[in-house]
Measured scan of single mutants.
Amino acid sequence: MGFKLLSKLLVYLTASIMAIASPLAFSVDSSGEYPTVSEIPVGEVRLYQIADGVWSHIATQSFDGAVYPSNGLIVRDGDELLLIDTAWGAKNTAALLAEIEKQIGLPVTRAVSTHFHDDRVGGVDVLRAAGVATYASPSTRRLAEVEGNEIPTHSLEGLSSSGDAVRFGPVELFYPGAAHSTDNLIVYVPSASVLYGGCAIYELSRTSAGNVADADLAEWPTSIERIQQHYPEAQFVIPGHGLPGGLDLLKHTTNVVKAHTNRSVVE
Rank of each mutant, 00 (worst) to 15 (best):
V257M: 08
H180A: 00
P41Q: 12
V126K: 06
N211K: 08
G89V: 03
A95V: 11
A111I: 04
H260Y: 09
A90S: 11
A111H: 06
A90H: 10
L97S: 03
R128E: 13
E39D: 13
L81D: 00
N149M: 14
S62Q: 08
A129G: 11
I58N: 05
L83G: 01
H57F: 03
N71L: 01
D164A: 13
P170D: 03
V212D: 12
T134I: 02
A19D: 15
E203G: 07
L83A: 04
T140W: 03
L249W: 02
S264H: 13
N184K: 03
Q49F: 10
G210P: 06
G2V: 08
S22R: 12
G89I: 02
E219H: 09
G242F: 04
V146K: 14
D216Q: 08
K258A: 11
A66V: 15
M18G: 13
S56F: 08
A94H: 13
T253G: 00
L9T: 14
S7M: 09
Y188I: 02
S56N: 15
I186F: 07
L249G: 01
E225D: 13
S205D: 13
F26V: 14
L6C: 15
L195D: 00
R206M: 15
A178Y: 07
A192H: 09
T134H: 02
T14E: 06
S38G: 11
G148T: 04
A19S: 15
L82C: 03
L127N: 00
A94E: 14
G72P: 02
Y196P: 02
P176G: 01
D118I: 06
P41G: 15
T153P: 06
V166H: 07
A95Q: 12
G246V: 03
G197Y: 01
A21G: 13
V28P: 11
L73D: 00
A87H: 00
I17L: 10
G197N: 04
M1W: 04
P152F: 02
R167L: 11
A213G: 10
L249N: 03
D164M: 11
S30H: 11
Q49I: 08
W88D: 00
L9P: 11
I201G: 01
I201Y: 04
F174K: 00
G210I: 05
D85K: 00
D164F: 06
P107G: 08
A209M: 07
G53P: 06
E233M: 11
A218N: 13
E147R: 11
E39L: 12
E39G: 14
Y202V: 15
S113H: 13
T254L: 14
L9E: 15
S191F: 12
L13V: 15
I74H: 01
G169L: 04
I84N: 04
R76N: 05
G2H: 15
E225N: 10
D77V: 04
F168V: 05
M1N: 04
V121M: 04
V67I: 09
I186W: 03
V108H: 01
A94I: 15
Q49Y: 13
L204W: 09
A179C: 04
T182R: 13
T114C: 03
A98H: 15
D164Q: 12
V265P: 14
T140F: 04
L204S: 12
A133Y: 10
I224Q: 00
T60R: 08
P170C: 03
N262V: 11
G240A: 05
T114N: 03
L173H: 09
N149E: 08
D183K: 01
A136E: 03
A178R: 11
G242R: 05
S22C: 10
M1F: 02
L217V: 11
A178C: 04
S160I: 11
I40C: 05
G240S: 03
K258F: 10
R226M: 08
S223T: 11
A19C: 14
W55F: 06
V212W: 05
A179K: 02
S27T: 12
L9H: 11
A111Y: 07
G197R: 01
A51V: 13
R46G: 09
R128C: 07
I186Y: 01
H57P: 02
A15Q: 09
V42R: 10
W220T: 00
Y231F: 11
S27V: 12
A21I: 13
D216Y: 05
A130F: 11
G158K: 08
L243I: 15
G240I: 06
H115G: 00
E150M: 03
I238Q: 00
R128S: 12
S31E: 09
Y175Q: 00
G198L: 04
G2A: 09
V45L: 05
V126I: 08
L24V: 14
T182F: 13
D79V: 10
A90F: 07
A192R: 10
E39A: 14
L96P: 04
L5I: 15
P190V: 06
E267A: 04
V75H: 03
H180L: 05
L156C: 03
S31H: 08
G246S: 12
V67A: 15
V54P: 02
R46T: 07
L83Q: 02
A133G: 09
H57L: 04
L173N: 05
R76Y: 06
A95T: 11
F63Q: 10
I74Y: 05
G72T: 00
A213D: 13
S264Y: 09
N184L: 01
V132R: 01
E150W: 02
P232L: 08
P244M: 09
Y135S: 01
H241M: 00
S162R: 14
E39T: 13
V54R: 02
G89M: 00
S191N: 11
V42Y: 08
V266T: 14
L81M: 07
H154G: 07
R263M: 14
Y175K: 00
G245F: 00
R263A: 14
Y175A: 00
W220A: 00
G2S: 13
L106S: 09
Y175S: 01
V187D: 04
A178T: 07
G89W: 02
F168D: 00
Y175R: 00
V42S: 15
E267I: 07
A259K: 13
E145F: 13
Q228A: 13
F236A: 10
F26E: 15
Y196L: 01
H260A: 14
S22P: 14
F26L: 15
V237G: 01
T60S: 13
K8C: 15
A215H: 05
G32R: 10
V126W: 08
I17G: 13
A133R: 13
D29Q: 11
G122S: 09
P232Y: 06
